Simulated scan of single mutants.
Amino acid sequence: MTISPISLAGKTALVTGASSGLGWATAVALAHHGANIVVTARREERLRQLCAEIESTGTKAVFFAGDAAAEATAQQTIALAVATFGHLDILINNAGAGNYKNLIDTSAEEYDALMNANVRSGFLFSRHAVPHMIEQKQGTILFISSVSGLQGVAGEAVYSASKFAQVGFAQSLDAELRKHGIKVGVICPGGMKTEFAVGHGRTEDYVRSSHMMEPHEVAEAIVFACLQPPNLRIPQMTVRHMG
């Protein structure tokens, strides 16, 4: 029996929070595997640079700049994907924020900001992507959570709560959408060498000298989850470094 390699050629992938770090690396990795790319984040110039980098490899890429926690951003980015490429096959809910503080040092405004960035954004993009995926009877939705969504630690209560919420949301959607041919999973990485949470509990020196993973390494794990055969899905994956 000959086994044909699985390709993302012709697929359309949307990555939120793509202007830096893991989002950027994931968009590039998916493009290298043949997917057409749609990216969104708040920093428009970064998105222009990312699309130029992707298109220099011969892959098509478009962007929409906006706050992932705003419903209009989700609606317009998904509309752009469908208008440009005709369909949306992969959604990577990567947008998020980190803030590592003790409870008594955390304000209500910081709580709202974390929940909006880490939970509301994934709800909105999934809510508006799923009707298209139901109609085409296939799709993959991945949430980028964290090991902090599996085990709470001191000084990260609100952050962990938002990441636990992503895990629960993904598990429920997996049960709800599987009958429509839609795969839903959650990726739980450990720390990465990105600007994420620098100034909100981490310093540049701490990140640089750590054993944390490079974003392109975790991006390959995300691509792996997107490359499973039609009858296979990865509901949950934990990704850790060797340090």
Rank of each mutant, 00 (worst) to 15 (best):
G58Y: 13
T59G: 01
K60Q: 15
K60E: 14
A61G: 13
F63P: 03
F63A: 12
F64N: 15
F64L: 15
A65S: 15
G66N: 13
A69F: 04
A70W: 01
E71G: 08
A72P: 00
A72T: 14
A72L: 12
A72I: 13
T73Y: 01
T73H: 01
Q75V: 13
Q75S: 08
Q76E: 15
Q76N: 15
T77H: 05
L80E: 12
L80S: 12
L80C: 11
A81F: 05
A81E: 04
A83T: 12
A83K: 14
T84H: 11
F85Q: 07
G86Y: 07
H87E: 15
L88R: 02
I90F: 07
I90E: 06
L91W: 03
I92W: 01
N94G: 04
A97P: 00
N99I: 03
N99S: 14
K101F: 09
N102V: 09
N102R: 15
L103P: 04
D105K: 10
T106L: 10
S107H: 03
A108Y: 10
A108S: 12
E109A: 13
E110V: 10
Y111E: 09
D112I: 09
A113D: 14
N116T: 02
A117N: 09
A117P: 03
V119M: 10
R120V: 04
R120N: 05
S121C: 02
G122Q: 04
F123E: 05
F123Q: 09
L124G: 08
S126F: 05
R127M: 03
R127W: 07
H128T: 05
H128Q: 05
A129I: 02
V130L: 07
P131Q: 04
P131L: 06
H132G: 08
H132L: 15
M133D: 08
M133W: 09
M133C: 12
M133Q: 08
I134E: 15
I134W: 02
I134F: 03
E135H: 11
E135I: 11
Q136R: 10
Q136P: 10
Q136S: 08
Q136W: 04
Q138N: 13
G139F: 08
G139R: 08
I141H: 11
S145G: 03
V147Y: 05
S148R: 07
S148N: 14
G149V: 07
G149R: 05
G149P: 00
L150Y: 03
L150R: 10
G152R: 03
G155C: 12
G155E: 12
E156R: 14
A157E: 09
V158F: 05
V158D: 03
F164I: 09
F164R: 06
A165S: 14
A165E: 10
Q166V: 00
F169P: 06
F169M: 14
S172Q: 11
S172F: 03
L173C: 06
L173S: 07
L173W: 13
L173R: 10
D174Q: 09
D174I: 00
A175F: 06
A175E: 06
E176S: 05
L177K: 09
L177P: 11
H180Q: 11
H180N: 12
I182K: 04
I182T: 03
V184L: 07
V184K: 04
I187N: 09
C188I: 05
P189T: 09
G190F: 03
G190V: 04
M192H: 07
